[in-house]
């Protein structure tokens, strides 16, 4: 085990994959000289050179299309979109092309590309640099959507993403980069569609994603002092979704809260809640509660941006109400 930051986990894993497989390359804005905004690829240009650590022009569509085209002919690109907010420019290339080619070729063409990006609040960057847009992608057949919440999960899921021949969108969170955790030292992978129980408990299941997992764990700690035992589950991939893990947990606890930073309406939180309602209807004491970001553009400033997305306090309130 090594203790490292989420940011360093990205860099170490990327470097490992670049060393392991010559066809892997990283492409993105300022991934080379700057080594990514957060340092997630610092030093890689020196080790691997500009052909494999490719500073892209500010052209999200071209960078994404380039990654897809090269993946069709033997390369395994990791395409980094600096902020998920910029992915709107790249979405045609991803969704209409990259994700469609396998089916349109009747299975003859493979598109082994990883789209890495980061979302969420935490840098006081306001409404065009702080969104949680994962929901759009969960609705695209053929695309895997991963949202690791810990350094260890990041390593395992990023390795799986690079080694998979399916296109994968891996969404990091800007408030996670400098969190730390234990990371096994071996070359492990984490399969897509396998949830992880981050904290076992008996009274209520809290299903949370990405940075919200940390909020849920903080809430669970507070609630433990009040005698409430929370089980915190992180699905790790929004699609494929480990329905069984959610259902098994809720059948035991009989109570469920779903937490996402993204607004509730039309989102994955509704999907998770539906799975629980459909399969645990008899066991549920009360309907599933959702704790989600407010339906607003993310406002500017330290206090305000945090005020419109869930935190441990919101989760504690929801759990208390549910169990009352």
């Amino acid at each position: 085990m090594a203790r490292m930051s989420y940011r360093d986990a990205i860099r170490e894993t990327t470097a490992g994959e670049l060393r392991r497989d010559e066809s892997v390359y990283l492409i993105g804005e300022d991934v080379g000289r700057w080594g990514n905004l957060f340092g997630a690829s610092a030093g890689l240009l020196e080790e691997f050179g500009p052909a494999r650590i490719c500073d892209s022009p500010i052209s999200e569509a071209a960078m994404t299309g380039c990654a897809i085209g090269s993946a069709l002919y033997g390369m395994r690109p990791i395409a980094e979109i600096m902020y998920i907010d910029f992915i709107t420019i790249a979405m045609d290339q991803m969704i209409n092309h990259g994700v469609k080619y396998h089916q349109l070729s009747n299975g003859q063409v493979r598109v082994p590309v990883v789209f890495r990006t980061q979302g969420g609040v935490g840098m006081r960057n306001s409404s065009q640099h702080s969104q949680s847009l994962e929901n759009w992608f969960v609705n695209v057949p053929g695309l895997i959507v991963a949202m690791p919440s810990t350094p260890a999960d990041l390593c395992g899921l990023l390795r799986s993403a690079v080694r998979s021949d399916n296109p994968v969108l891996l969404i990091e969170h800007k408030s996670l980069y400098f969190t730390r955790g234990e990371v096994p030292e071996d070359d492990y992978t984490i399969p897509f569609g396998v949830a992880d129980i981050k904290r076992p408990g008996e009274d209520v299941t809290i299903i949370a994603t990405s940075w919200m997992v940390l909020q849920a764990l903080a809430a669970a700690k507070t609630l433990a002092d009040e005698g409430i035992s929370c089980e915190v589950i992180d699905p790790r991939t929004l699609w494929p979704l480990d329905k069984q893990a959610l259902v098994d947990s809720v059948k035991r606890t009989k109570n469920c809260v779903v937490v996402t930073e993204a607004p509730a309406e039309g989102g994955w939180s509704g999907e998770a809640a539906s799975v629980v309602h459909e399969q645990c209807f008899a066991e549920l004491r009360k309907p599933v509660r959702r704790v989600c970001g407010m339906r607003t553009g993310i406002p500017y400033g330290t206090d305000l941006e945090k005020a419109v997305v869930p935190d441990a306090g919101w989760i504690c309130d929801a759990v208390r109400e549910l169990l009352a």
């Binding site: 380039c66 990654a67 085209g69 033997g74 045609d92």
Partner: peptide, 20 residues
């Protein structure tokens, strides 16, 4: 494909693979 203009970046990517 039927999205007007979308082929140009992808063709560039194919060419990148050939060059590499």
């Amino acid at each position: 494909g039927s999205i007007v203009g979308s082929g140009l970046p992808i063709a560039a990517g194919v060419a990148l693979a050939f060059k590499r």
